[in-house]
Write a protein that binds this DNA or RNA. Structure first.
Lengths: 124, 124
DNA sequence: CCAAATATATCGGATGCCGATGTATTGTCA
DNA sequence: TGACAATACATCGGCATCCGATATATTTGG
């Protein structure tokens, strides 16, 4: 019975599909990008990201292609470093807008609880 | 060491402290209230709520008092139904504003990814 | 009178989370 | 040139979380 809930995963999915909506990225760069965008608030670790990326790909929300980066220095002989580039699929794009909608729904409920005060402080 | 992260719990904490900030409620009424407020988007179940309420109380974020509701019909002899009313403590109020701040931080990152379109629907 | 709703509560199996770990290549700097 | 940091991918397993199932009791409505 598909459709099980994966608590934390949902917001991670939102974030990952979100960055990939802008442009294709490879795993390591996703980690850096998200950290930068969130000012280190969201720290994806390899142990969390890669399995998630595999799941997302299995679900056809994203797709990948390999790139082999060969260094000049090392020359022809080197095996090269491998990068797996991920990009959103059409299905992924649909899922993303669903997630955004769901997030906004939650958000509006939160705002209903705590209407932003005009005189609110702007952080400490 | 205390201070471990509890993924899903955090947003639940936000929601629960949020409703209790408005007025004291008892468990069952929290479930109904949250369901109503979120238009059934957030369905707290007893199995999730009560343990969480106990934790929150142990952490002194909320406090409780028992009420015994005796029905007219049943009369003096009846044991009465028990309601455990919860209300926010000062500590709970501080925690709540922390959670709101954290939520808004996450929120603003999401907005950075997906800037709200000017032509967006306002929902009803 | 009985079923549904109200009301609180616990428990345990399934699942998710993520730190630790592993492997390999490239960049850098003394 | 050697070695350490950073880049880059990936898996695994233990512990914590999650939440459905379950238990118990009272009240309300038809």
């Amino acid at each position: 019975m598909p459709g099980k809930v994966k608590p934390q995963r949902e917001s991670l999915e939102l974030v990952i599909l979100g960055v990939l909506a802008e442009e294709p990225l490879y795993g390591y760069s996703i980690i850096k990008r998200v950290a930068a965008r969130s000012e280190d608030a969201i720290r994806l670790t390899a142990g969390v990201l890669y399995p998630l990326l595999h799941e997302l790909e299995a679900d056809r929300l994203i797709a990948s292609t390999w790139e082999t980066v060969r260094s000049e220095r090392a020359g022809e002989a080197s095996a090269g470093r491998k990068r797996k580039w991920y990009h959103l699929t059409a299905k992924g794009r649909r899922r993303l807008s669903q997630r955004i909608t769901a997030h906004r729904a939650f958000q509006s409920m939160i705002e209903a609880f705590f209407p932003p005060r005009a005189d609110e402080e702007t952080a400490t």
